[in-house]
């Protein structure tokens, strides 16, 4: 039993160490994507530095310059960028 617990623990640790960078890479890609979307709308941002997922295809982005936007896809399939306070 001890051995099994040890194996599971080690696996979790290793998996965590490997998975974190993977998700971090995804996160960076998402930030770049949102940065591009906001720029395409001609809105000031500079660079997205933080992203929070509000739902499916719905994100809250915080820009380097302090601006905050909600970027989401509406029912018509359009990407909408709304400024948040």
């Amino acid at each position: 039993m001890n051995k099994l617990a040890l194996v599971v623990a080690r696996s979790l640790v290793v998996a965590a160490l490997v998975a974190v960078p993977l998700f971090a890479a995804d996160d960076e890609a998402l930030k770049k994507d949102l940065t591009a979307v906001i720029a395409l709308q001609g809105l000031p941002c500079g660079q997205v530095v933080a992203v929070a997922e509000l739902g499916k295809d719905d994100y809250a982005a915080t820009c380097k310059d302090g601006n905050k936007y909600r970027v989401y896809m509406n029912a018509e399939g359009r990407v909408v960028v709304e400024k948040r306070q």
Partner: peptide, 16 residues
């Protein structure tokens, strides 16, 4: 993890 990663398929836009 790998299979999950492909879903987002978020590329690398380089707007900035």
């Amino acid at each position: 993890c790998a299979s999950h990663k492909t879903e987002p398929q978020v590329a690398q836009p380089q707007a900035a």
